[in-house]
Write a protein that binds this DNA or RNA. Structure first.
Lengths: 214, 214
DNA sequence: ACCTGAACACCGTTCAAGT
DNA sequence: ACCTGAACACCGTTCAAGT
């Protein structure tokens, strides 16, 4: 309401104008606390003490805002052991796991990144790092790029599904065929191990291809 | 407007009430012709000559409607050579390609299926068929299930990205880093071959795991 | 440079009531 | 059983105008 801000010492502060980073930060906060459905331009503006129309000075539209959010999420992916002194297989696994963790760190993180992927704004970096790790295994340049992109899509698709399942479970909206899956040992963690299995298949495939040099 | 329908011969027909299949059919038609953003309850109702609220007699909500649409899309996936007489690797590839093609057959098909996957309503069948093909290779039961699910997520993620890219290209909304990609030979088909490479990696990984029996 | 105020053209969903 | 009519509580976006 009041653009003026008064400090505890009585001194008057400048009207608190927001930066682009402030907006994406608030968007990330909403995403984390409430999820993508609540990340509306109106909610975001309210959290910043702005009118919705003010956001359009910082971003041309919502899609651009989401792209910036996706960028931030992906950029926080850091592999556990960044030293590339170890095995190239561990390097690939490490990069993939780091991305996987980064996507799961924010509610609906995988969906946000996935929906922005085609614009090539943030995942290009993740793809490049996957490709670099793959190249350590001695795979050809163009083949490494394509393998990295394929691995990227697997990681994103898998992460998104895990988050969807978590959300569906918490809402109690599960189809009988899924809920009564006979293989489920614990009962609610049906997807356990799928990511690891898929990742291992990818790495094993890379190794096999490296040997036979198709 | 008028619930009565008059045939060319002058005979009066019964008021044309709609079935569930009519609704999903109209939804598929909108999806194919215009895409997911235009698949609104109001557009759908208008195409059927109904009020929007009438749709809620056939489906409890939009999500359930989309699940039915996704079911229909996935169920149309038929492998090229259904005879399992050939190689198990060809069977796996054939199933994956069939799913890939089915998702690409409808505009935004991959996104619709992806967003409905967690409810386990339609892709369970696709996953089971992939698992069956994988089992032909002699892979263990639980491992086959997980491998199939991982492959499923790769196929969906990859398909969705291809459709996104097509749409982004047609709208001319491409980031400079993507548009000026030096590897692009043709220029607009940057994702060419990624699906095939990823699929080959998966199959090679399955074969390697089958031999070493980890 | 950064934001307000007001409007435009939409959404999904509910629910009493009709036939 | 199938649908209408009307309303409720929202959306993203534009644009003139303010400071």
């Amino acid at each position: 309401m009041n653009p003026m801000v008064t400090n505890p010492d009585g001194q008057e502060a400048r009207t608190p104008r927001r930066s682009r980073a402030d907006v994406t930060g608030a968007a990330l906060a909403i995403l984390d606390a409430q999820g993508l459905p609540d990340l509306t331009m109106r909610n975001l503006a309210a959290r910043l003490g702005l009118q919705p129309s003010a956001l359009y000075w910082h971003f041309p539209n919502k899609q651009a805002l989401l792209a910036a959010v996706a960028d931030e999420i992906v950029s926080r992916a850091r592999p556990a052991v960044s030293d590339a002194q170890g095995d190239w297989r561990d390097a690939v696994r490490s990069e993939a796991v780091a991305l996987h963790d980064a996507l799961l760190a924010f509610k609906d993180g995988a969906e946000v990144v996935s929906s922005t992927l085609a614009l090539g704004l943030g995942a290009e970096e993740a793809s490049a790092r996957l490709a670099a790790a793959i190249r350590l295994g001695g795979v050809d340049g163009m083949l490494a790029d394509r393998s990295a992109e394929a691995l990227l899509h697997f990681v994103i698709g898998q992460s998104w599904h895990e988050q969807q399942r978590l959300q569906a479970d918490s809402l109690g909206v599960v189809a009988p065929s899924v809920a009564s899956h006979p293989d489920a040992l614990v009962g609610d963690r049906d997807a356990s191990g799928v990511f690891e299995v898929g990742l291992d298949l990818f790495v094993a495939g890379l190794e096999a291809g490296r040997l036979s040099e198709i």
